[in-house]
Design a protein around this nucleic acid. Structure first.
Lengths: 99, 99
DNA sequence: ACGAGTGTTCGACAGACGTCGAACAGGGCG
DNA sequence: CGCCCTGTTCGACGTCTGTCGAACACTCGT
């Protein structure tokens, strides 16, 4: 489980990551909860298989949008809001403003 | 040749449009010149066929990033900066800040 | 009127990527 | 230990889309 830094991420990678609607759903849900509140299993409502979900988490983590931490069997998530916004000003706000 | 309005464009469409590197090149070059200064043929340096280029212009026009106007045989372009920035604050600036 | 230049449209192709199921690894609890 | 739960990995499949060339439409000089 390798974490990418938002500072080293390219705009290409950021746009690729956020151009998927499911990944934007993940980001929005994460933004609506406190840090480290939601394990990956929280997102079962999304209409994709768990293997697909795992793939999406990897993409978000690589681009530096997500930080993950294992606690027992569960993997908790945190949105790296400040760091990501410092690298790509306004981009995260755009996603969070989506209905 | 139908123009889409930035106000009616979805974030999905905007991200799809800007996630292509060639389209971002077009946008950046357009931003570096006055309005209506550049016809489509100006972008021959880009490593794609002219039919591909035409396709990219259509995508940018549909999402409301581009306004086009025929003048004789040539088709001139204008970036809809204000309108697009009003709909997606910061997104265009992000593209223009790219190297 | 002819040819050169500009741009679009069409069909076909190839690569990228989102998707899935099955198999696997590890933790916690009876 | 045995079972359930959580999450990852792997290979395969389908679709979307960027790409091209050829053909077409149109304007402008000569």
């Amino acid at each position: 489980m390798t974490h990418g830094s938002p500072m080293e991420a390219s705009l290409q990678a950021a746009l690729d990551a956020l151009s998927d609607p499911i990944r934007r759903c993940i980001v929005r849900e994460l933004a609506g909860a406190p840090d480290w509140a939601l394990p990956c299993g929280t997102f079962k409502e999304l209409p994709v298989a768990k293997s697909t979900l795992s793939h999406h988490f990897t993409v978000l983590r690589n681009v530096g949008l997500l930080e993950q931490r294992d606690e027992g069997a569960r993997r908790f998530n945190r949105l790296r809001r400040e760091e990501f916004d410092a690298r790509f000003p306004g981009l995260l706000a755009l996603v969070l403003s989506e209905p």
